[in-house]
């Protein structure tokens, strides 16, 4: 399972001669960062990494904010139309609208004048049923006595939300953040169609461009670029693996 990464890493350090040697080599004769430098220079890969970072961070923030607020409404209040609203959200749970409805969504973006902007890459993804349900599930596991006590003390809903619910959801928020970040970082089809200007492209599109435009087909450079695109999520994963896996499983089995 890990072999492709191993080969890619070793390829990324090889010189052009070594890349095309026959039989293919498994290890570079020396560690050489030339390919990484070149991959950054051929295209504006630095800018693309920055774009991906901005997009993934803002999307994550948005999903956490809308998700916790919405979840609070569903977990602590009874109101007219609750079931209808819940169901309306529920239908979208498994629907990847940015993929299935790609053309009309693109038309909406051009109506708003958002094509080629961060808005198009961020705003449509700042709310999701998955996040709302995940937090709702968690908030409902918090003892209602806390809520009653807050009410008796005369706390406003937002005070209860900020001072009690959110602090009690630390690990949940952290876990959801990682999953949302990785999801946003890895998006491909939507950024592919909604950005034309190289300055607005995300790093996933950069990987495609490296493969498509590098005329020499120097796999050392392509693999160096690909690894740089994968590095942020890989680091997140290696460092926070336990939290990552735990949140993934809770979000799935109980969502």
């Amino acid at each position: 399972m890990f072999l492709p990464f191993f080969l890619a890493v070793s390829m990324s350090f090889m010189s052009e001669v070594e890349v095309f040697s026959y039989p293919p080599k498994f290890l570079p004769s020396q560690i050489n960062f030339k390919n990484y430098k070149e991959a950054l220079d051929i295209m504006n890969l630095k800018r693309m990494l920055l774009n991906s970072f901005i997009v993934a961070t803002c999307t994550t923030l948005g999903k956490i904010i809308t998700g916790t607020l919405g979840a609070f409404a569903f977990s602590s209040f009874n109101f007219k139309g609750k079931n209808t609203l819940f169901f309306t959200l529920f239908i979208t749970l498994f629907l990847p609208a940015e993929t299935v409805m790609i053309l009309p969504l693109f038309m909406i973006m051009s109506k708003f004048g958002w094509v080629n902007t961060y808005w198009a890459l961020i705003i449509p993804f700042t709310a999701s049923a998955t996040n709302t349900f995940l937090f709702r599930q968690h908030f409902m596991s918090i003892p209602t006595e806390l809520e009653d006590a807050a009410k008796i003390d005369g706390a406003t809903p937002m005070q209860y939300f900020r001072k009690i619910l959110i602090p009690l959801s630390g690990p949940m928020i952290a876990g959801a953040s990682i999953i949302n970040f990785v999801y946003a970082w890895n998006m491909y089809l939507w950024p592919l169609i909604v950005t034309m200007d190289n300055k607005m492209k995300t790093v996933q599109i950069g990987v495609k461009m490296l493969i498509a435009t590098d005329s020499t087909n120097n796999w050392g450079i392509i693999m160096a670029g690909t690894l740089m695109a994968a590095l942020p999520t890989l680091i997140l994963f290696f460092v926070l693996q336990d939290l990552f896996v735990k949140s993934l499983v809770t979000s799935g089995l109980k969502g």
Partner: peptide, 25 residues
């Protein structure tokens, strides 16, 4: 708690869902 609070809390989510999921659908 206030009668309208839950609706205010749900506005952000539904704004996004309606604009970017329901409308294109």
């Amino acid at each position: 708690w206030g009668k309208y609070t839950p609706f205010l809390l749900l506005i952000p989510t539904f704004l996004i869902i309606i604009l970017f999921i329901y409308w294109p659908t």
